[in-house]
Design a protein around this nucleic acid. Structure first.
Lengths: 230, 230
DNA sequence: GTCTATAACCGGATAGAC
DNA sequence: GTCTATCCGGTTATAGAC
């Protein structure tokens, strides 16, 4: 259904040609204003041929995910290698994320629109996007592991997933953020990263035990039962 | 642009006829499987006539919102009138919500897909949906006011909005919940309502002051600057 | 001015020939 | 693997009828 195997080098060539053309046009004039006919024409292939490689206009978006994810990884590397303070590590990673996706904000609406559809393979909770999701979660695992912070034993294993969820919430906000340069989201990140760091520290207090225990049991239960959120 | 004034009784009649037909077909065969031509045919009017009353297929969804909102209000009334425990009030309201929207789960994905688009007037953060949003927030204000719980002075004014945001998060989870009868979401609500109640109580502790203060300042700043989330 | 109908247009998607 | 021809459904233009 989805990824048909492209055999020949020529096929590879045509495929990536179409993809690059599409991403360029999306960024230039937006998703809705870019027709499949325009993509095909600009790429120098027929409409039917474009559909041979990409089952729908939507799946072209997957290329966007892959591209920005790799850009984000690159942008994160310096902080993850040098910084040891947990709060600053998280802040660096989140800032890098916002900077990476900023050029695409104008068609972010469409992204979230498709991402919100539970039946779409593009939605971040779907089976199909598990690899991407796990790679992204892994970034947050590295944020925690590479830091000097002491983490509550029970919180530790869940923390990367919790941070990934937090990061999705920020992106949701970012999508709806109309402030110039998305400064509201930047402020939100700065403030909430501080809160998150504070909460992580507080989680070690004995008086927090019952609350934390309950919350963590819930979270891990939900992840175990799969198919719905987180 | 949007709401054209329908003057004659005959016009009113035709309009509501189309709307009821549409909602029926949506529930029966789903949103995507229901064409505007089918709606028009079933309602006994021409395609052009349907578009005279409803500018697009999407705006027919507004009827769904209004309908479920009123059903929810009705379903909440008993709890809001009798119960005084904050946690149980909130739980009752949230359960009522889930029960109200359950029949529509099969096409909820599409509904919220369009609702998620920042440029759509249907999205819950838009200016156009402010009235609905405020009405919904008001339900949570009543949850708090009618309870016997003591609320931190500074938390009080923000609490209804925070609860509304919480409720939106639950709905997002619900959309992606594939467990039979959405039992996962019900469990999530039961657990998180308990956590929320606990957090509200904790917010009065002196040691929480700086954390709470910081969080609340952030939240009210963001709402003041409008245009992005919450 | 209020309402209704017919005939396009446009763009995503598919069928099938080469 | 690539094309042309076509379908299909949301949307619009426009011509009239009450």
């Amino acid at each position: 259904m989805s990824a048909l195997a492209i055999k020949t080098p020529k096929g590879q060539q045509t495929r990536s040609n179409i993809l690059e053309t599409a991403l360029g046009l999306f960024q230039e004039r937006g998703y809705d204003q870019t027709t499949m006919r325009a993509i095909a024409a600009e790429a120098g292939v027929s409409l039917g041929n474009a559909y041979y490689y990409f089952a729908s206009k939507e799946v072209l978006i997957q290329g966007f995910y892959e591209r920005t994810h790799h850009e984000h990884l690159a942008a994160c590397a310096p902080i993850l290698e040098t910084e040891t303070d947990l709060q600053r590590r998280l802040l660096g990673v989140m800032r890098a994320k916002l900077e990476t996706i900023e050029p695409y904000h104008r068609f972010a609406g469409v992204l979230f629109k498709t991402a919100a559809d539970p039946s779409s393979p593009l939605n971040p909770f779907s089976d199909e996007s598990r690899p991407v999701r796990e790679e992204a979660t892994n970034v947050f695992a590295r944020v925690v592991e590479g830091s000097s912070a002491k983490i509550s034993k029970r919180l530790g294993p869940e923390l990367p997933h919790l941070l990934w969820t937090y990061h999705m919430g920020i992106i949701l906000f970012w999508i709806h953020d109309t402030s110039p340069g998305r400064t509201n989201t930047v402020r939100l990140v700065e403030q909430t990263v501080a809160l998150v760091a504070r909460l992580i520290a507080m989680a070690r207090l004995p008086m927090m035990r019952p609350l934390i225990g309950r919350a963590l049991r819930l979270v891990s239960d939900l992840r175990a039962s799969e198919g719905a959120g987180a």
